[in-house]
Design a binder for these strands. Structure first.
Lengths: 337, 337
DNA sequence: CGAAGAGATTTGAACGTTCAACTATGTGTA
DNA sequence: TACACATAGTTGAACGTTCAAATCTCTTCG
């Protein structure tokens, strides 16, 4: 019933347990015939090396942790987290690692404490940090470094934190989007973006927008929301009834864009005839909206895989240089523009 | 730099390492003054018991695994998985357990093999299995039992598998929904539900629908889809142009209902005047649709917590009786009906 | 044919914890 | 005073693995 150990395999193959270990890690040379015999025994006894013992002896954990910051119950429906998390898990698997998840809130000291405890207990050996809209979180990342917890930032530029990061080329995406709207004859392009809680990825989009419209000698106009569907809906009502009524609304994510499209329909405003609306993410529901949503496809899955590989690199060589990777994004034109 | 161990604490407090262990597990009696001294030392040295060593000695893993079955890349956007997974993680945390995730496909032997390997390596000590639309998966659950892997089924009735399960009272939900439609004067109520890949939760909804309409002496009519938004859209086109044109379309999940609502709008069919449309789940986007969606709220988060507690119960006492828990659901009436 | 040296294999110790058995100390009872 | 006995604390072994050093077994060559 209980699982086979090194010694069981050794006894079965008629060698010492160290020889079995040598075969497994091909550490010291083993005679081919012996190796074959040991491998046979491993198969027959269905032996699998005990991870706990390995971790104890090697002082190396093969579990990683994905940290979601600024994660409230309402955010739970967001495909964003789901998508990247699955990508982490699958990529970790292929490298022989397990993946755990933690939800942190920079305003809750207890959540940080229980996280630290888990780390100190050796439950995971490295983290990928996903910060969405939690500006205080960056300080805690600094703390991770002090703890000696290897760390890679996801979808965030590390500024001066001194940690590696993987993100996408949002500047490129915004430029493509603005160019697209301009090419369709739009010249009153408004940006809808969250005001508070500006994660660095949002700051990047904000700055890129201003540069992009300026490059076409167009005025910039910004209206503020907060990432949610409802906020997109409200922002549309607000922006439609001002002197700045735009002919293109560039929403900083797909959810707000979906809200704006609904608001337009409720007001009887025709999209894209009277106003073009675009999103940012290219989640599944961008195809559901009526009209379907023009947006920027962000390769979150590829970014996640890259982040995981970067983290593994840091684990192997703790003095690896910190690096920031930018992945390209692409414009997806649909009916809404 | 390296972490404090039992011996470090013992040396600091001037006792033997076993005494420290006794304090931590209050196993043998320790004099209050000594206990206090040890606790002080633990604090000062920032000691945290090493999980790997604990797991090795106790042959007990404090990591659980959440298994998603029938999980294809396209399903990744589904709030369903996201929601329950977060609930698992949070509940596990409060009990001192970590949570991993695995994606299995009953048609892929490799995925099963690498999963088994992870289990044999002692990466997790129990699983919660989430099967959506993978009829072969049930056989693999049987296999888990043979491996000695404690297991709880989520959102699925175990039929004769002999494992515990947590699900919701879908029969109640369907009855409430049908009664609601009837109370609004509807008498041609059609069900939209997947045909193949019938997870037991879908079978339950299917049977409940037939009983419910029969209880009102109404005819039953069923049209088949496959859980997705697109399938809901197509099903609406199909059902609208038949002799069986319904005045209420009861969709087996929210996504199909959202698709149906879009299709109705595209055809210029007024909802709910000409036809009522209802969903099942009550995910966030049920509020996004135009009109907003009448649906059944399924307490997935509470179900997840319950499933995790059931699993922990099985772990503590491996001879605990298998039990199936049904949680109540509730009708949420919105504009679409 | 004996010694050197490489190759193959074994033994001992350690990782940090818990369990079992053992020793030392104090407390009440005959 | 001597004894039993609970209480407090200690030491030794084990969990399953890897690393370091030690031993054994061949070749190969002077």
């Amino acid at each position: 019933m209980s699982r086979a150990t090194l010694k069981d395999v050794a006894a079965h193959a008629g060698v010492s347990y160290q020889t079995v270990s040598n075969v497994l890690n091909d550490h010291r040379s083993v005679r081919p015939t012996t190796r074959e015999r040991v491998i046979q025994s491993i198969r027959m006894l269905d032996y699998h090396p005990n991870q706990a013992a390995k971790a104890l002896r090697e002082a190396r954990v093969t579990t990683l942790c994905c940290v979601f910051y600024g994660y409230h119950a309402e955010d739970i429906h967001d495909p964003y987290h789901n998508l990247i998390q699955s990508a982490f898990i699958l990529e970790a698997y292929t490298h022989g690692y397990s993946m755990t998840t933690a939800f942190l809130d920079s305003k809750s000291p207890e959540s940080l404490e229980s996280f630290r405890q888990a780390f100190m207990q050796g439950r995971f050996g490295g983290v990928i940090v996903v910060i969405t809209g939690d500006t205080l979180a960056a300080k805690q990342v600094q703390m991770f470094k002090e703890w000696g917890l290897p760390c890679v930032l996801f979808d965030n530029e590390p500024s001066s934190l001194g940690v590696s990061a993987v993100t996408a080329d949002y500047t490129q995406g915004i430029f493509e989007l603005v160019n697209h709207h301009v090419s369709k004859g739009r010249n009153r392009i408004t940006l809808l973006i969250p005001k508070d809680d500006l994660a660095s990825s949002a700051i990047t989009r904000h700055n890129a927008y201003i540069k992009a419209v300026q490059s076409h000698n167009l005025p910039h106009h910004i209206v503020f929301g907060e990432w949610s569907f409802e906020s997109g809906e409200n922002a549309f009502y607000e922006v439609w009834n001002t002197e700045h009524r735009p002919d293109a609304l560039l929403c900083a994510n797909d959810r707000m864009a979906a809200g704006a499209i609904l608001a337009a329909r409720k007001l009887g405003v025709r999209v894209p005839e009277e106003i073009a609306i675009s999103g940012f993410d290219d989640f599944e529901f961008a195809r559901y909206t009526a009209p379907s949503l023009t947006t920027i496809r962000v390769p979150y899955d590829e970014m996640a895989r890259q982040a995981l590989r970067t983290l593994l690199g840091n684990l192997e060589d703790s003095h690896a240089p910190t690096q920031t990777t930018f992945l390209p994004v692409s414009l997806v034109v649909r009916e809404s523009s």
